[in-house]
Simulated scan of single mutants.
Amino acid sequence: MDRISSDTPVSPLRQRMQDDMLMRGLGSHTRQDYIRHVRAFAAFLRRSPDTATADDIRRFQLHQHESGIGVATINSAVSALRFLFSVTLGRRDLARSLVVTRFHRKLPDVLSVEEVARLLEAAPGLKYKAALSVAYGAGLRVSEVAHLKIDDIDSTRMLIRIEQGKGRKDRNAMLSPHLLDLLRLWWREGKLRGVMLPHGWLFPGQGRTEPISTRQLHRAVQEAAERAGIRNALRARKIKPCIPGRRGRKRPVRYDKTLYKQRNVIERMFARLKDWRRVAMRYDRCAHTFFSAIVIAATVSF
């Protein structure tokens, strides 16, 4: 859906903003969020956003903080209004007046290995057990698990191909032998039940032609948590374990941790190669200067 459908007439400003977002390749969910934030800003002003001033923006952000709106929502509104003022309206001075709220990063709340084992065993059916095992064993997001296809499982290279994941990027994830065996069990059962189509979805939804929804996976996690006796608040995204990476970023824990050891070794090798190259270039410059001085001295003496 390229344009956000609505029964109410679309104003020229809103239509222009939608066209600007479409031309720049913004996703459908991002476009919907931006329109929603701009609509909230217009409701606060009680007039068109193109008549806003820097003082109006300040009052709007103060209103958001006083109303107890979350930091993520405030920053999302900042991104939407920056796009509106800088791109659609060409008012970069107003875009610079928007303030991004800093928030304290917390350690991810993940389950222990024992809790994950109990959760997977309590999954309501083989399909959900295989789906949740992929999320944990390969470090996939819930939406990525839901949109996996049968052809994305590469048993030859032991990889899982994720197409158009977060940020519209393709990547590969590691596939463990135990996870491959579990996926094969689910594939055989799905073939017997008649829900697995050739080159179709790995985890079909209620219809064979549609993938399983993220809501179904969330409900399966809640049901499995109740069966396993896990009391804390649990969502499907907590199944994906994370460890801190560089610059405070998070990266998934793969099933085989030797990958990270090999990656660190390779990074150290490249770092040493760069150091050796830098030293070689330094000695090369010194040698060039030395031989040039000898040539000049020989010419003068001659």
Rank of each mutant, 00 (worst) to 15 (best):
F270H: 14
C242R: 13
R282K: 04
M269D: 11
R251Y: 07
N264I: 04
R278T: 07
A233W: 06
R263N: 09
T258H: 13
A228P: 05
L259D: 03
R219D: 08
R235A: 12
Q216M: 08
R249T: 12
W276A: 15
R268S: 10
P252Y: 07
E223A: 08
K250Q: 11
D275W: 07
R237F: 10
G248H: 00
R247T: 03
A271S: 07
R247F: 07
A220M: 01
E223H: 07
A225C: 03
C242H: 14
Y255M: 13
K261T: 03
P244F: 02
H218C: 05
Y255S: 14
K261V: 13
P252Q: 04
M281C: 09
K274C: 07
T258K: 01
V265I: 14
R254V: 09
P244S: 09
A280C: 06
P244M: 01
R246P: 08
K257C: 12
F270S: 12
N264G: 10
L217V: 06
C242K: 05
N232M: 15
Y260A: 10
E226T: 12
R272V: 00
A233E: 09
Y260H: 08
W276N: 15
L217S: 03
Q216K: 06
P241D: 05
T258E: 10
T258F: 02
R272M: 06
P244D: 04
V221A: 03
R237D: 15
V221M: 05
F270E: 11
K250S: 15
M269F: 09
M269E: 12
G245T: 06
D275G: 05
P241W: 01
L273K: 02
K240V: 09
R263P: 06
K240N: 03
K250A: 14
F270D: 11
Q262G: 02
R251Q: 05
N232Q: 11
K274M: 02
V253C: 08
L259S: 08
M269R: 04
R227Y: 06
R268M: 06
G248I: 05
A233L: 08
G248D: 01
R277G: 07
R251D: 01
R235W: 11
P244E: 09
N232P: 05
